[in-house]
């Protein structure tokens, strides 16, 4: 565990907390993609199956359970809460799951370290996490008024990615056997997806304006 990884995890946790807070406090999920949230829930389920058979640290297990619980809590609010679900932009959130899930599953079946069920699911979760933000980015591009909490949520997620890359660079330099190329490539792609968003986020922040993405 290094400082970069800890910062990454904390930004990840913070992004989820901001989203949950937004939903609970404003009773609204406007601007949030349910597709992205459900994909994240699927990512966590596939990746954290190892909760049942491997133990790394109390910190790891605690965070895994927290991520699972919060992901399902967000999905539950957006799908079933009487008030919140009415604010969901159903017509705008049209990204098809199959376009993301199918290629990731295929890739995980072909490109993995070991052809076992848990290892393939773990690899699938890594690939899927890399692209799961796409429905959210598409939704934001369609939405005229992006509220600050939504913008901050995505920015925090981007910060989490950024710190994880620093963490990998650090581990690559300090650990003899750190050669996780599947994680590296997926992670870089995932972070690159945020680059465009961050450009406009910084632009609007500098101009002290509400975030608006160009069509």
């Amino acid at each position: 565990m290094n400082l970069f990884r800890l910062c990454g995890d904390m930004f990840h946790l913070l992004s989820i907390m901001v989203l949950l807070l937004k939903i609970r406090a404003t009773r609204s999920c406007r601007g949030i993609s349910l597709k992205t949230q459900e994909l994240y829930a699927l990512v966590f389920v596939c990746r954290y199956l190892d909760l049942f058979y491997s133990f790394i640290s109390v910190y790891n297990s605690f965070m895994k359970v927290t991520f699972l619980a919060t992901a399902f809590s967000i999905v539950r609010y957006m799908r079933y809460d009487k008030v919140v679900k009415q604010t969901y932009d159903r017509e705008q959130d049209t990204f098809r799951y199959v376009f993301l899930i199918a290629p990731c599953l295929l890739l995980a079946l072909v490109l993995n370290h070991r052809f076992t069920l848990t290892e393939v699911l773990w690899t699938f979760s890594i690939y899927l996490e890399a692209v799961a933000i796409l429905p959210q980015l598409v939704l934001m591009q369609r939405t005229q008024n992006i509220d600050n909490l939504t913008a901050n949520y995505v920015a925090l997620l981007g910060a989490y990615r950024g710190f994880y890359i620093l963490n990998w660079i650090y581990r690559f330099a300090t650990e003899r056997h750190y050669r996780q190329w599947i994680v590296w490539i997926s992670g870089v792609i995932q972070t690159a997806l945020y680059a465009d968003f961050f450009f406009y986020y910084a632009l609007c922040w500098k101009a002290n304006k509400r975030l608006q993405l160009p069509a």
Binding site: R5, D9, H12, R47, D50, S54, I56, N60, M63, K64, F67, H113, W122, Y164, N167, E175, H177, Y178, R179, Q180, V183
Partner: peptide, 10 residues
Amino acid sequence: AADGQAHDEL
């Protein structure tokens, strides 16, 4: 792990 594939991150 020796093969560097321990899933010790989140």
